[in-house]
């Protein structure tokens, strides 16, 4: 078993941490915007809803259903040519943002949609009865009412992204997951692996804590 050299290890961990944070936050922000948007479109265009539109609903729903069941590693590899075009390269943490964001936005779309569907239809109807037009009902009633659960759903995706970066790391993204794999798994450097795991746990804990706080702030309710 090799001796652990902390003077070289710590900068490595620091670098990997930064790479992971770049991948996670980049992908998360992009996916949150795109995913929440997609979720709303699917919700609003569903038959019987505010802005029902069969074509839009069917197309987006199909895209979401096609991407979702495919394992991330397959998506990431399959997307390499597209990633190269979109991000200019297929190697490194910045490039990895693309497949991560795509997969996460599809997941967020489903979560956002289910949060929106869970909004009491009675409240939506109350809005309509007050003479509020569909778009305004969506933005001033449905979204605010869904915000609490949505914050929790986004937190869940954030944590899942930390997990997915490990996979992205193996196929060229770098980051903590890659470090744990190369040192811990391939070189049997348990110390490095444990430190990386500790850092990952800390990130996840922090994210979950922040997510819970935000959700509680916007929910005001004991439901």
């Amino acid at each position: 078993m090799p001796e652990t050299d902390f003077s070289t290890l710590l900068p490595k961990i620091w670098n990997a941490l930064l790479e992971t944070l770049v991948m996670v936050t980049g992908a998360f922000i992009a996916a949150a915007v795109l995913g929440v948007l997609l979720g709303h479109v699917v919700y609003a265009t569903r038959a019987g809803n505010l802005l029902q539109n069969a074509t839009v609903f069917t197309v987006i729903n199909a895209v979401v259903n096609i991407v979702r069941p495919v394992p991330f590693i397959i998506v990431a590899v399959a997307l390499i040519p597209v990633t190269r075009i979109v991000m200019g390269s297929s190697i490194g943490p910045v490039a990895a943002i693309f497949p991560l964001a795509l997969v996460a936005s599809v997941a967020i779309a489903r979560i956002a949609e289910s949060n929106l569907v869970a909004v009491d239809p009675g409240v939506v109807e109350a809005g309509a009865a007050m003479g509020v037009r569909p778009w305004r009902v969506l933005f001033t009633i449905v979204i605010p009412e869904a915000l609490g659960p949505l914050a929790l759903g986004l937190t869940y995706i954030f944590v899942a992204l930390v997990d997915a970066t490990a996979v992205a790391g193996v196929i060229g993204g770098g980051g903590l997951g890659n470090l744990a794999m190369t040192y811990g798994y391939q070189r049997f450097d348990w110390v490095t692996m444990f430190i990386v795991i500790a850092v990952l746990i800390a990130i996840v804990q922090l994210a979950q804590f922040a997510g819970n706080r935000i959700a509680r702030l916007v929910m005001h309710e004991g439901r």
Binding site: V123, M130, H220
Partner: peptide
């Protein structure tokens, strides 16, 4: 017209947020 017709419901339908 709807603005001139108030409506109340069995389940109140208040905005929880």
């Amino acid at each position: 017209l709807r603005q001139r017709i108030g409506m109340i419901f069995q389940q109140f339908n208040l905005l929880q947020s």
